[in-house]
Design a protein around this nucleic acid. Sequence first.
RNA 1: GGGGAAGUGGCGAAACCGGUAGACGCAUCGGACUUAAAAUUCGAAGGCCGCAAGGCCGUGGGGGUUCGAGUCCCCCCUUCCCCA
Length: 879
Amino acid sequence: MAPSRACPYAGRLDFSHEAPLLKNVYDPATLEPRWQRHWEDQGLFRAKNPGETGFDPRQPKFYVLDMFPYPSGAGLHVGHPIGYIGSDIVARRKRMEGCNVLHPMGYDAFGLPAEQYAIQTGQHPAETTRQNIATYRRQLKALGLSFDWSRELSTSEPAYYRWTQWIFARLFDLGLAYQSDKPVWWCEELKTVLANEEVISGRSERGGHPCVKRPLKQWMLRITAYAERLLADLDELDWPEHVKAMQREWIGRSEGAEVDFAVEGAKETLTVFTTRPDTLYGATFLVLSPEHPLVAKLTTAETRAQVEAYVRAAGAKSDLERTDLAKEKSGVFLGSYALNPAFESGEKGARIPIWIADYVLAQYGTGAIMAVPGQDERDWEFAERFALSIVRTVQPPKGFDGKAYTGDGPAIASPRWEGQRVAEAKASAIAWLETAKHGRAKVTYKLRDWLFSRQRYWGEPFPVLHHADGRTTRVPDELLPVELPAMKDFTPSADGSPPLARAKAWLETKDPVSGKSVRRDTDTMPGWAGSCWYYLRFMDPANERAPFAPEVQAYWGSVDLYVGGVEHAVLHLLYARFWHKVLYDLKLVTTKEPFQRLFNQGLLTAFAYKDARGALVPVDQVEERDGAHVKKTSGEKVEPIIAKMSKSLKNVVNPDDVIAEFGVDTFRVYEMFMGPLGESKPWNPRDVGGSRRFLDRLWRLLVDEEGGAVRADLLQERGGTPSGETLTLERALNKTLKRIDDSFTGFNFNTAIAAMMEFVNEGTRARAALTRSQAERFLCALAPFAPHLCEELWSRLGHGDSITRAAWPVADPAYLVDDEVELVVQVNGKLRAKIRVPKDADKAQLEALGRAAVSEQLAGKSVKKVVVVPGRLVNFVGE
RNA sequence: GGGGAAGUGGCGAAACCGGUAGACGCAUCGGACUUAAAAUUCGAAGGCCGCAAGGCCGUGGGGGUUCGAGUCCCCCCUUCCCCA
């Protein structure tokens, strides 16, 4: 809020003795909670499932879903609900269009922050989560969002995670869940492992703590088995192109070949992956990653000390540091040689040295590359640095003076495919490798298997049992859920063993099949697990026999519109798609993809302030004086910056405060009026009042503030075709309805609200001409945006049923055209006059009318050309 | 380094297919109402020159295509996002 200003409505709501006593002012503080109670009592937003009473199979279904929130301790700020409001508008409109709308909300409640908080405060995460959810629920309900609250769920409840474990059991049975002890990212600060995608530049994505690679036994999910389908099926989705592009990049498909290199004086072969098999003749050395299993074996006595030191140093670096292009290349010669299969042994170029270098990563391809400096920039740099030979095998274009040439061109120095261009040469090289048995065509993906365990308490326990003989079996479905044991201390042990390892009574158990002693798994699932399928549980949230009934899923299909932040473009959306495809293969769901249409709302930013020393000043301590921002107390000048709302920037605005001052409908209208939903824009407390004034004006247009519930003349409908001012209003209304409709395509509701403001202004100007029917159609169109106010006015107009059940108003094309249109008259492309012309005037008439209007400017000039665009302009082009 | 999105008044923004740039709103200024203020209401307002009529300039910068470019093409600058 603009802290320097008192509430601008204080005057209106202050019934002091001198103010005229208005019984009927717009008072959102009383009417909004009343309508919210009404909606809840009537169960107006309950979606009907097949088989329920009142379910109508002829009604089209529409599933509109928000990405559910992680209930943090701070509660909602005004940036969170912007997407919820947008999706709510769609949901409410779809209901008015006669759809059976599924619009649920829940909580992604497992996760690290609650546990970190628990460790600090000693409060159980179940307890803090319960409290946080209560806050979220209260705030969400205050926003008047039309959720079907009977479907509310939380991923940390046993009734929910029972089925998360059940789905894990399916993955386990399919061999898609397995244990591995490859090196994984370990975060010392968080005392847990993290997935590759949760570590950015060697630091944890959450909290920015340093991470190191460590070998640990971990659960992995074989998402790579679905790489091809996760890639291919993107094509059919109605998603923003850049999100699809990010997923494609993340999956990182590359086509190429594996090539086997014999090692001189050893029986092992080294297999490398290359996307450029056509450059085989130019492979002048091999480079292994320092972690490659054959490094020790291929190291000679003379080089051993140096190699071992290098391997140690490389282990401490992050992938980003290792592959940074700007970085000086480093590496060590192992002392051994490989034989390039393109050459006969003894031929020049056949014997090539084997190096290790940290720019080659163990996880990608085979962890080894053939270096082709002539056609690869990094290899060129490496060759230059260590004086290794460089052979061009693709002819660069004339005048090329660079180093490595990576473009297209004819093959040279490559007898088997001499002269062929890159694409053709690749095919020839692969064909030759396969017949000569030196290699094979190969597709690799950058996508890695998903590291699926965390050494934490607050997550889903794995429904598995470890046997003394080393076998791992899963807990039978009928014994799920495996509930978290009650614990008081969640601190990870100093040795890194998880908290669950200390829950002895829980840990040691009997195998229900054999009766023998077994141990449970002490890891838990990562925070992503619950969100992988929550959209399915919403379809049938109370089902105790299955995660969801097949006929219910068959009815709701997939999510028609999924709204959320772009920060989930890769991880959540990829993981959920993976699980969905597994369920599809098991014939548990009928659709290939979970989310048909995706929309990303833009980031809501806010002003934050810095003083002269650069220290942050909380927003509520700043005011505007004479166009400058100053500190309230001292008058000291502060500099405004625009940034994401966050506690640390001290620029968080709480929706509770905005609602208390202006009402929810104003809040909803303002958030949508700020700009297109997809774009990021700053919250400006100064602007909120404008949205409130719009609703006030509407109220006064319809309500008799000094007496009746509505203006008396609106109680009865006037018949007949509109004429005069009423006709003008009818046209204005239909244009408004059209613009509102158009705004739903791109979620630029700001234009819809602008149109509605114009109509209210127009209506205020011609108050007496406004008919009941016009008022009603307008209210129906505004209802999804400002539902409480519209319900109130709708009921005051005498309707017993909720406006939610009213029909969505459609523009009548007959009223979208005017009798006269404004025409612009230009001379040489410059605006010289505006004239009003009949809408059906032909080109010749338009030219004549235009010529008359600019006769003065045309005097003495010769007109060479006349451009006439009916409905737009006439342009006279002279010399 | 590669890819993507964006850049329009003091501010948030609008402009369908190339056809009146700045709708709508905020802030600002002025009139009415009021003892006064608030609220309300009517009106002004991109910049420059001019008493005015009017003129010139103007959508990050530079070029181009066109009768006509915020919109299309080329080059450049800045910001944000993703990848390396």
